[in-house]
């Protein structure tokens, strides 16, 4: 119990939040890493997955990518990237020590959920809807932008949400290989048997994870075209893709 009270004291002491080693700095750093990795993964994953989904091809690829991605521990991937000459542990601007290695590992980690959900979402838009769009004389790109994408949106966003929360959680692991982020406080707390510090940082990480999760859930509801008005669901039915690794 004393450890927990000390952790609370650590959290409520202003000095622990400020400065270049403070929690604010590390929190912002980890958020920056998370969103950069997610943005890159979205740029790559979404464009390919939505396109393939529109064409309705390469379904086996989507499934296999996710399955293989699950089996590779992010920690192992990080360790290998950090030990290579490039990217290694080089500083990368605001991303801190081993910034590039962390970004690459997290980006690869975010790809499977984004890719699979986006692919399935576009692929499984109800066939009658697609057919009537063709019947109305819509071109391929019109069908994609006006019909398939809006209907696929909820599932696409849920994939991004899954990836966001997982990437945030996994970003803490970077500290095990001397990387950036709030994880550094957790590992430092352990190795120097300063548990209150580790627990305090863990608490902050958990709270942010929860806030991200809830925020995304609200966003997901906001973009669902089926929520307002029409009673029948035209898009693909919900949870098709089970969640992956929450590291």
């Amino acid at each position: 119990m004393r450890t927990l009270r000390d952790s609370w004291d650590y959290l409520t002491t202003g000095a622990n939040w400020g400065g270049s080693e403070g929690m604010w700095h590390l929190l912002v750093q980890q958020l920056l890493i998370t969103f950069t990795a997610l943005a890159v993964a979205m740029a790559i994953g979404l464009s390919i997955a939505l396109w393939l989904g529109h064409l309705g091809r390469a379904g086996f690829l989507a499934v296999n990518v996710t399955n293989i991605g699950r089996a590779v521990p992010t920690f192992a991937l990080l360790a290998i990237l950090v030990t290579l000459n490039h990217p290694g542990t080089a500083e990368l601007g605001p991303y801190g020590r081993a910034g590039l290695a962390t970004l690459i590992a997290l980006m690869l980690f975010a790809l499977p959920p984004i890719f699979t959900n986006a692919y399935v979402a576009v692929r499984e838009v109800a066939a009658p809807v697609k057919e009537s769009a063709i019947g109305m004389g819509m071109t391929g790109s019109q069908r994609f932008w006006r019909v398939e994408l809006p209907l696929a949106m909820p599932l696409v966003v849920s994939g991004v949400r899954l990836a966001l929360v997982q990437v945030w959680a996994t970003a803490t692991i970077a500290a095990l290989v001397a990387g950036p982020g709030l994880g550094t406080l957790i590992t430092a707390g352990f190795y120097r048997t300063d548990y209150p510090k580790g627990i305090a940082a863990a608490f902050v990480v958990a709270v942010v994870a929860f806030v991200l999760e809830v925020g995304c859930a609200l966003l997901e509801r906001a973009v669902d075209p089926n929520r307002k008005g029409t009673a029948t669901r035209l898009g693909p039915t919900r949870p098709r893709v089970t969640s992956g690794v929450g590291a």
Partner: peptide, 17 residues
């Protein structure tokens, strides 16, 4: 699901005490 959102590296410190 709520437990699932807590990162594993953050979960261990809570259990250690």
């Amino acid at each position: 699901t709520m437990i699932y959102t807590i990162p594993s590296l953050a979960l261990f410190p809570f259990l250690v005490p």
